[in-house]
Simulated assay, not measured.
Amino acid sequence: MTDEAAPSTRKIIHVDMDAFYASVEQRDNPELRGKPVAVGGSAARGVVAAASYEARAFGVRSALPSVTAKRRCPELIFVPPRFETYRAVSAQIREIFAEHTDLIEPLSLDEAYLDVTENKQGISIATDIATIIRARIKEVTGLNASAGISYCKFLAKMASDLNKPNGQAVISPRNGPAFVEALAVKKFHGVGPATAAKMEGLGILTGADLRSKPLAWLQEHFGKSGAWYYNISRGIDNRAVQPDRPRKSVGAEDTFIVDIVDLAAARAEITPLAAKVWRHCEAKGLHGRTVTLKVKYADFQIITRSRTTSTPISRLDDLEAIAQSLLEPLFPAPKGIRLLGVALSSFIDDEETETDQLELEI
Rank of each mutant, 00 (worst) to 15 (best):
M1D: 12
T2D: 15
D3K: 14
E4K: 13
A6K: 15
A6N: 06
S8T: 11
K11V: 05
H14W: 08
V15W: 00
M17F: 03
A19N: 10
Y21I: 04
D28T: 02
N29I: 09
E31C: 05
G34M: 09
G40Q: 07
G40N: 09
G41R: 11
G41V: 04
R45S: 13
V48D: 01
V48F: 05
A49V: 02
A49T: 10
A55G: 09
F58S: 08
G59D: 08
S62E: 06
P65N: 08
S66A: 15
V67E: 11
T68Y: 01
A69N: 01
K70N: 02
R71I: 04
L76D: 10
E84N: 13
T85K: 14
E95L: 10
A98C: 08
T101R: 07
T101H: 07
L103D: 06
P106L: 01
L107G: 05
L109P: 02
E111S: 08
A112L: 10
Y113P: 00
L114D: 12
D115R: 09
D115W: 01
V116S: 04
T117Y: 04
N119T: 03
S124D: 14
I125R: 14
T127S: 15
D128F: 06
T131S: 13
V140E: 12
T141K: 08
L143D: 07
N144W: 09
A145H: 07
A147W: 08
G148I: 10
D161Q: 10
D161M: 12
A169P: 02
V170L: 15
S172C: 04
P177I: 07
L183M: 15
A184L: 07
A184W: 05
G190C: 11
G192W: 12
T195K: 05
A197F: 03
K198W: 07
M199D: 03
M199N: 07
G203N: 11
I204A: 08
D209T: 05
L210Q: 03
G223R: 11
K224W: 04
S225K: 11
I232Q: 03
R234D: 02
D237Y: 09
V241T: 06
Q242N: 06
P243C: 03
D244E: 13
K248S: 02
K248D: 00
G251D: 05
I260V: 14
D262L: 09
L263H: 01
A265C: 07
A266Y: 06
R267T: 09
I270S: 05
V277Q: 00
R279N: 10
C281E: 00
G285K: 00
G285C: 03
R289G: 01
T292Q: 05
K296A: 02
R305C: 03
S306A: 15
R307Y: 13
T308Y: 11
T311D: 14
L316F: 15
L316D: 06
D318K: 15
E320W: 01
I322F: 04
L330D: 09
K335G: 10
G341M: 01
S346K: 00
D350E: 13
E354N: 06
E361M: 10
